[in-house]
Amino acid sequence: MDLENIQPKSVLDTRGLTCPMPLLKTKKALKEMVSGEILEILGTDPGSKKDIPDFGNKGGNQFIGMQDSSEGYTRYFIKKG
């Protein structure tokens, strides 16, 4: 999927937060969304690069992809299942 032109329903900013906060906030944000909607997560924790994709594929959700931005953070996309 083309990550550049993706239209997320909401954006969750976790920049500066460390394990486990990005994951907790992702779980909470996904709970408040409807099936089919896309959540974008911004993060700087190195641990998130494995945690968020792993978690994103659990519970019927789908991890779409991630992309490093030029400003030093990473964007993650999860589709609510």
Binding site: T14, R15, G16, K25, T44, S70, E71
Partner: peptide, 10 residues
């Protein structure tokens, strides 16, 4: 309230 850190764009 959630707090975050925004790094300045290079």
């Amino acid at each position: 309230p959630g707090q975050t850190v925004h790094s300045e764009p290079k």
